[in-house]
């Protein structure tokens, strides 16, 4: 007997959201020509790098009816193997408070990413990275929505600074955009579960997901060092106001999930120090299925290549000088 219980639908909704959020915990930073792309909090940015994001803390409400409150604490370590190839490992601990239900907590599935730097073009401040993100099924707690199946997500990330606009564009040249588009393929097309009380069998279709998003950022460091030095206070010259957006659209095998797009738009700000950055953003759901109200996310991000340039901060098989933030 196949039933599709509301619980499984809620779990599927949670899974959609947590599938989206862990992807967002893959971070990178880079310099391409004049342009420094900071590590963004919700989508990946376009460079392979040696870095550590810890902690990333977010608090938001889920798209369930009624909404559950979710607290995520995550970390991710990224390591270059060669100048252009790197891997990353990340994990997220979640605490979910659903009205009328016991609090659930535990780790989400372990995530890894294999990343390759496809392009870095200094003149046009353009970078592109290809990656294969893998969420390892069964490595997390089902109580917080961790899937029992592995998901593979080939993904392209790109970034483009507008510094190559004519000089007459002036302050507009400090703008940059980044983007990310991935296709998440579940290792299993459906998940079967048995209710321990009733014995009912539930089969849930696991959709294939288009994961997409981007950011619009205005770099005060760029404005000062490449456009015009306004003599502003040092702290202002290290800020990057940013708006990130991330979306998930089920595109096939959608019998249970439907095809509605969920996601969030995240306005915030990043402070860039010499060896670290700190960022904080609001999490604004785009519709009710994406969340009940506004949440918040904050992150401390460490540039290991700057902190430990001669040890863990450089590629294992480096071809020359440390080039992570070099423009060529």
């Amino acid at each position: 007997m196949n039933t599709r219980a509301p619980f499984m639908q809620r779990l599927a909704a949670l899974t959609l959201l947590t599938t989206c959020l862990p992807l967002s915990s893959a971070y990178a930073h880079c310099i391409v020509g004049n342009r420094f792309f900071p590590a963004t909090l919700n989508i990946d940015d376009p460079c392979v790098a040696d870095e550590l994001s810890f902690p990333t803390i977010s608090s938001f409400s889920t798209g369930d009816q009624p909404a559950a409150r979710q607290l995520d604490i995550s970390g991710e370590f990224s390591k270059r193997i060669t100048d252009d190839f790197g891997i990353s490992v990340g994990s997220t601990w979640s605490r979910i408070s659903e009205p009328g239900a016991p609090v659930a907590y535990g780790f989400q599935n372990l995530e890894t990413a294999f990343q390759y730097q496809v392009v870095k073009n200094a003149e046009h401040e353009f970078a592109m990275m290809a990656s294969l993100n893998i969420e390892w099924g069964g490595s997390g707690a089902q109580s917080v929505g961790a899937d029992r199946f592995t998901t593979y997500a080939p993904t392209i990330n790109f970034g483009k600074g507008f510094g190559d606009l004519p000089d007459s564009a002036g302050w507009l040249r400090a703008f940059a955009v980044t983007g990310s588009i991935g296709y998440a393929i579940p290792g299993s097309s459906s998940t079967t579960s048995v209710d321990p009380d009733s014995g009912d069998i539930t089969v849930t279709q696991n959709p294939r997901l288009l994961q997409w998003g981007g950011s619009l950022q205005y770099s005060m460091p760029y404005l000062k060092s490449a456009v015009i030095d306004l003599g502003l206070p040092d702290v202002v010259n290290k800020l990057i106001p940013i708006v990130e957006a991330q979306f998930v659209t089920p595109v096939s095998n959608t019998a249970d999930s439907g095809t509605k797009t969920t996601g969030t738009i995240n306005p915030g700000i990043i402070y860039v120090g010499k060896t670290y950055q700190v960022g904080v953003e609001a999490i604004v759901p785009i519709n009710r299925d994406s969340g009940g109200n506004v949440g918040v996310i904050g992150q401390l991000h460490l540039y290991l290549d700057d902190m430990f340039p001669n040890s863990i901060g450089r590629p294992i098989f480096a071809t020359g000088t440390n080039t992570t933030r070099t423009s060529q």
Partner: peptide, 24 residues
Amino acid sequence: ALFLAAGIAAASAHAMLDHASPAV
């Protein structure tokens, strides 16, 4: 982690243009 970052911040990093004369 924050103290670690702050402590090492003064040690080394990429060299970026701080300012110029004539100014940017």
